[in-house]
């Protein structure tokens, strides 16, 4: 275990409870309701900021938030944009905020060292999926805000449930690092197992697993140079069958969606083709 995590304080319960309450209040105030006023939204932003600070403080007590300015920035972007995604009334703006959240998440993944996934998230989500949604939104709602965008279902209950769930998750994450190394982490990880194993594998037939050792021994600051190659080897080695299944899934989704969408429109064109 990391020495920093082992020496962290237990989570102050009061702080956590306060953040949960602030988050619930903020969500309730910010979610679209008929009784919204400018002041209630302002109050919601205030509570939201308080909740953010509270959770950051909790995270700090978990193990040093603030050590990495880049991580804090991208995490802040993703969390704030995520909140904005669900509370914004205009669906187009909601989608834009979701794109911002994606950018933040992609940044988090890059900081975590998953270069391929970080960039692939942008390519797949922001580049293809979200553009389609924007298409639909822009065509469906040229102007104004529909009534169903100005109310939400059970905002109070949902906000409370979400905040409590987040509190519980935070608590368990805190337990994870503050206590003795828990069961999941006590198991030797693959890399640790390899690091512990004698290094005679280097240069032998299994070159890939030999280079996989390198990050574990070379220290945490090193950027993993062959990240994509490793991921590809893993994907098309151990998980080849799953990749094939995913490919079939994509094909089925493609064919299915085209079949559903073109069911009603084919008649006129077909008729014309036949007549000519």
């Amino acid at each position: 275990m990391d020495p920093v995590a082992a020496t962290t304080l237990p989570i102050p319960g009061l702080l956590l409870a306060g953040s949960v309450a602030a988050l619930a209040a903020s969500l309730w105030l910010l979610l679209p309701k008929t009784s919204d006023t400018v002041n209630s939204r302002r109050l919601g932003f205030l509570f939201g900021a308080a909740a953010l600070i509270g959770f950051a403080a909790t995270g700090r007590s978990l193990g040093g938030v603030g050590a990495d300015a880049v991580f804090l920035t991208v995490a802040g972007i993703s969390v704030i944009s995520g909140l904005a995604t669900i509370v914004t009334r205009s669906p187009v703006y909601s989608a834009i905020w979701f794109a911002m959240a994606l950018a933040g998440v992609s940044g988090v993944l890059l900081v975590l060292g998953a270069q391929f996934l970080g960039v692939a998230t942008i390519v797949v989500y922001a580049g293809a999926i979200l553009v389609m949604f924007l298409f639909v939104l822009m065509l469906a709602q040229p102007s104004g805000m529909a009534p169903y965008d100005r109310v939400s279902n059970e905002p109070m209950l949902a906000a409370a449930a979400g905040a409590v769930l987040l509190g519980l998750l935070t608590l368990s994450i805190g337990r994870l690092s503050a206590a003795e190394p828990p069961a999941c982490c006590r198991l030797p990880s693959r890399a640790q197992a390899m690091a512990a194993a004698p290094t005679e594998g280097v240069g032998s037939e299994d070159d890939r697993s030999a280079t996989l050792l390198a990050p574990a021994t070379a220290g945490v600051e090193r950027v993993d140079a062959d990240e994509v190659a490793h991921l590809g080897a893993e994907l098309f080695g151990r998980h080849l069958f799953a990749v094939e299944v995913a490919g079939v899934l994509l094909l089925v989704a493609l064919v299915g969606s085209i079949a559903v969408v073109s069911r009603g429109e084919a008649t006129e064109t077909d008729h014309r083709r036949e007549s000519r």
Binding site: V4, G59, L62, G63, A75, I173, L176
Partner: peptide
């Protein structure tokens, strides 16, 4: 490999 600090923050 990432330190446990980054792990908990990312989990959060």
């Amino acid at each position: 490999m990432i330190p446990a600090t980054l792990l908990t923050n990312a989990l959060l």
